[in-house]
């Protein structure tokens, strides 16, 4: 693979892709915004960033054909990185503003954090700020990362993977939740590497290193 991997960043229709594009450039990639399905076919990898609401983004992906193209790209073995909503949309169903179907690549649902911890204490939702992620995966992307690191989260919903084998990293907010999921050529994180300073840069660099090794 060439030295600067071409990464198609899917436009979810909600704007603000600047941070992700810039962070990818800094890490050494050549990102481009993919507004149409064709753009995905010429890319080395795809990335779905964390902008917008679940139902609106799911609808946008369906209307534009980007969702089908993304599923095809992943099925063909091209590496994928999902960020925040880009993790949530991999699952079958989300409950933000009513039920909506996701891409259905992973079994499980995306649900809002409960307002109480299992112990009955108030849990402030959204979950906003820096929290510790512990990697629990043999996925090549995490091999070069510290076992634990702090990343920036801003979300009210989180995925409940039905298959524990898909859990790649865990975080604790009231109770443990999936901070990252992975299988074969796909990797997705609930936090924002593009906002996570050094730790985020390390993760994006690890993603590019994995791409080059693919």
């Amino acid at each position: 693979m060439q030295s600067a991997p071409r990464i198609a960043v899917l436009d979810t229709g909600a704007g603000n892709l600047h941070s992700v594009l810039r962070a990818l450039e800094r890490a050494g990639a050549k990102p481009c915004v993919a507004e149409r399905a064709e753009s995905l076919r010429s890319a080395d990898a795809t990335l779905l960033p964390g902008v917008g609401a679940f139902a609106a983004a799911a609808a946008h992906l369906a209307e534009t054909g980007l969702g089908a193209a993304l599923c095809e790209s992943i099925a063909q073995g091209r590496p994928y990185l999902g960020i925040c909503l880009g993790l949530e949309l991999l699952f079958q169903e989300g409950d933000e503003h009513g039920r909506a179907a996701g891409l259905g690549l992973l079994p499980g649902r995306v649900r809002r954090f409960p307002q109480r911890t299992p112990e009955g204490a108030l849990l402030r939702v959204p979950h906003i700020g820096w929290n510790q992620v512990t990697w629990r995966s043999a996925h090549p992307l995490v091999k070069s990362l510290p076992q634990q690191d702090h990343y920036y989260f801003v979300h009210a919903h989180r995925a409940e993977p039905a298959n524990a084998a898909h859990l790649a990293g865990s975080c604790n907010y009231g109770a443990p939740f999936a901070a990252a999921v992975a299988w074969d050529n796909a990797f997705a994180v609930q936090f924002h590497p593009e906002k996570s300073q050094r730790a985020g840069r390390r993760l994006l660099e690890a993603f590019l290193a994995w791409l080059r090794a693919c």
Binding site: N16, A23, Y152, H192, E194, K195, Q197
Partner: peptide, 25 residues
């Protein structure tokens, strides 16, 4: 590479969108 919040003089939904589109988190 850190989250940025912007406030002050935000009057409408369009103002909110403009700021988010410009790169505010």
């Amino acid at each position: 590479c850190l989250p940025v919040c912007v406030g002050g003089g935000v009057r409408s939904l369009q103002d909110v969108r403009d700021l988010l589109n410009a790169g505010a988190d």
